[in-house]
């Protein structure tokens, strides 16, 4: 890890740990504004915007560190959403507005009639929404929507927004389609999942060493040890996949790596959440104990921006399209090429 990234990692870990302690919880939070200010104070919402353009700078690997830390500290603030929406607007060539931003994908073309955006986090706190449709982007004022179907079962407050008439603050054509934006949204979730699983593992380890039954700590039971070994394996896989995909996204086109990483992280989220809950017993099922801040979110994130089936099919189509080249040749050549780019860059 380079020095800059080490400092970033330490900084966000310290900040997020403090914020988490103040108790940002999923109720929409009295703490939201204070937290957001702390995050703005160090410039994080301008991550991935080039320093020349007045941003925080940083590449996908830097962003990955921050997104992962969000998941690890159970901070469900829409920082990742704001960062990506701003970075994308920058790439599109439009200056991003201030405040809390979200993004959403919709299938229809440039239809100006009513639009419903489902399952968005933190709708009450958002100032604006970047809507991406196959051939058009629109910047919407969050205040112009009606909120429906609120729920807390995804960890963060989520809701559907209904825009009875689309009256964008700004909009324009999208010449390259939405695929790469969608993939980056998936990578954000993969990083958050990796962070959340790491904390599930740590909570589970602490719990089974502390809690005693049958006269000894749960950690002494082999059945428990083996469950946690599997949890550690899933943690390792999700984490390595997400970090590798961030590395690839920094170096070039990373369609395959992101697809693979989101598939792996989503899969790990379910296995890990099952185990973490099982070894915690009833206490882990309470609102008071923190486990749900990681398990509910990780499962919801697994579903967001393409679930396991979606990404498995995507990877499958890529592998099949490369035929008759063997999968092995294609995969290793690609990886060698990416790493060669990194070597040249560091020269």
């Amino acid at each position: 890890m380079n020095d800059r990234r080490t400092i970033l990692t330490e900084t966000v870990d310290r900040l997020f740990a403090n914020l988490a302690e103040v108790g940002a919880r999923e109720d929409g939070g009295k703490e939201f504004d204070g937290h957001w200010q702390s995050i703005e104070a160090i410039g994080l919402p301008l991550l991935m915007i080039p320093e020349e353009a007045g941003g925080f700078g940083g590449d996908w690997e830097d962003a990955g560190v921050v997104f992962r830390a969000l998941g690890a500290h159970g901070l469900g603030l829409p920082l990742g959403e704001t960062v990506l929406a701003r970075a994308w607007l920058g790439r599109i060539g439009h200056k991003a507005p201030e405040g809390v931003g979200l993004f959403a994908f919709a299938k229809e073309g440039p239809d100006e009639s009513a639009t419903t955006l489902n399952d968005l986090p933190w709708t009450d706190r958002a100032d604006w929404i970047l809507l991406l449709r196959p051939d058009r982007w629109s910047l919407l004022d969050a205040a112009g929507a009606e909120t429906r179907e609120r729920n807390l079962l995804s960890g963060d407050p989520r809701a559907s927004l209904v825009f009875h008439a689309l009256d964008p603050i700004a909009d324009g054509p999208l010449s390259e389609g939405t695929a790469m934006f969608f993939a980056e949204a998936a990578l954000l979730r993969a990083c958050q999942i990796a962070g959340a699983i790491e904390t599930m593992l740590i909570l589970a380890i602490d719990h089974v060493r502390e809690r005693r039954q049958f006269g000894r700590p749960l950690a002494r039971f082999q059945a428990i040890q083996h469950q946690l070994a599997i949890l550690a394996e899933e943690n390792a896989a999700a984490s390595c996949a997400a970090a590798s995909a961030c590395q690839s996204a920094t170096l070039g086109e990373a369609g395959f790596e992101i697809a693979a990483a989101k598939w792996r992280a989503s899969r790990a989220a379910d296995i890990a959440a099952d185990i973490a809950h099982q070894v915690h017993g009833a206490i882990g099922f309470t609102r008071e104990y923190a486990l749900h801040a990681f398990t509910l979110r990780a499962r919801a994130w697994g579903r967001d921006f393409g679930n396991e089936t979606y990404w498995a099919r995507t990877v499958g189509r890529i592998a099949l399209a490369e035929r008759p080249k063997p999968l092995w040749h294609w995969l290793t050549d690609r990886s060698d090429r990416l790493l060669e780019t990194e070597r040249k860059r560091n020269e």
């Binding site: 390792a236 896989a237 390595c240 996949a241 590798s244 395959f256 790596e257 697809a259 693979a260 990483a261 598939w263 792996r264 396991e308 089936t309 990404w311 498995a312 099919r313 995507t314 990877v315 499958g316 189509r317 890529i318 592998a319 099949l320 999968l327 995969l331 990886s335």
Partner: peptide, 26 residues
């Protein structure tokens, strides 16, 4: 496999390729 395999086999090869990539990285 034929040119356009169905969803099941497409997803299966995709899952294998993704897991293979992850394990190799690890």
């Amino acid at each position: 496999l034929c040119d356009q395999p169905g969803n099941t086999l497409t997803a299966l090869t995709g899952a294998w390729a993704a897991e293979l990539w992850t394990l190799r990285q690890m």
